[in-house]
């Protein structure tokens, strides 16, 4: 047995290569086929023309007589860029998502900090309390806010009863309702990476800074904040990117004055049945989100790197 180590290794290597292929192959192929490839099709259809047929778009390549012709229709993109509605929906989405992300950060940071400073047993309980709501239906939790925020809803009734306001506030279908919805739904996504980062923070660094005469706000700005940068980045990306394309929250809590692009895409597809324009909306959204997705990807790759 010891006489043919080379051959033995050869077999082992082939077997290992097969095993490796068996491990990485299925998820890789699945995601390539069902996640990556579809984007090419979206791109293709965004360059087609709408038609009343099934499927409701034209082919890019066409045989006419003996000529193969490729028609790329850029009109969908031109339409998006020239129409006030789409441009303002994009800008609105970016602005609302950005503000909501900052709000999430401001609320989640102190929460994550307090939890990270707790004794380990208690930390788990509080983390569980934070995550628990996201395990119940997202749709139903957003729906709950309708009952609270509407004109004759609980919040207005309470404020009226307390005498703080004379007439009900119009909160539902306003931008404030959007912020409440997004912060409510995405707070855990901000909090978890912040917590994961803050919990690793070495107490001795804080003590050193204090011993060297730093005041508490100086310790925060010059030691804690820079050290938790990667957690802040990850949390912000986890909130910002999906918030830009959010559909349920603007649909249920938003109004006509604060259209977001996810809802526009939905309406373009389901109400207008214009698949090429819906595809163009998606492609432009993807382009806008490319940089944030890359940032998150870099962070994630570092976090999950084999050690």
């Amino acid at each position: 047995m010891k006489r043919a180590p080379g051959r033995e290794r050869g077999f082992a290597q082939v077997a290992r290569a097969r095993l490796r292929w068996l491990v990485v192959g299925p998820p890789y192929l699945w995601l390539l086929l069902f996640f990556a490839a579809p984007f090419l099709i979206v791109l293709k259809i965004s360059l087609a023309e709408a038609q009343i047929a099934m499927p409701p778009f034209t082919d890019l390549l066409r045989w006419s007589g003996e000529k193969l012709s490729l028609t790329l229709n850029l009109a969908n993109y031109g339409f998006l860029l020239s129409d006030e509605l789409y441009v303002s929906a994009y800008l609105n989405s970016l602005r609302i998502a950005l503000n909501a992300t900052l709000l999430c950060l401001l609320i989640a940071y102190p929460m994550a900090w307090v939890i990270a400073r707790m004794p380990p047993g208690r930390r788990l309980v509080f983390l569980m309390l934070i995550i628990l709501p996201s395990w119940t239906s997202f749709l139903i939790r957003i729906y709950a806010w309708i009952g609270i925020l509407k004109n004759e809803g609980l919040l207005n009734e309470a404020l009226l009863a307390l005498g703080l306001i004379d007439a009900p506030l119009r909160i539902l279908h306003s931008e404030a309702a959007l912020y409440i919805g997004i912060v409510y739904a995405y707070l855990p996504f901000m909090l978890l990476p912040l917590y994961a980062n803050l919990v690793k923070l070495d107490d001795r660094l804080l003590e050193a800074a204090t011993d060297l005469g730093a005041k508490s706000h100086q310790v925060f700005v010059r030691v804690i904040l820079p050290l938790s940068r990667s957690g802040i980045l990850a949390g912000c990306m986890l909130v910002f990117i999906p918030a830009v394309g959010e559909f349920v929250i603007p649909e249920l809590l938003g109004g006509a004055g604060n259209l977001m692009i996810g809802k526009v895409l939905w309406q373009e597809f389901f109400n207008n049945r214009d698949w090429p324009v819906a595809s163009a909306v998606a492609i432009v959204m993807l382009l806008l989100l490319m940089v944030p997705i890359m940032l998150l990807h870099r962070y994630q790759a570092r976090e999950l790197e084999a050690r």
């Binding site: 099709i41 895409l265 939905w266 993807l286 997705i293 998150l296």
Partner: peptide, 21 residues
């Protein structure tokens, strides 16, 4: 790793539309 990260944040409307197409 990009194929793992991107679905976590990709807006649902984009995933839905692209899969349907």
């Amino acid at each position: 790793s990009g194929l793992i990260t991107a679905p976590l944040v990709m807006p649902d409307v984009i995933i839905g539309l692209s899969l349907l197409l």
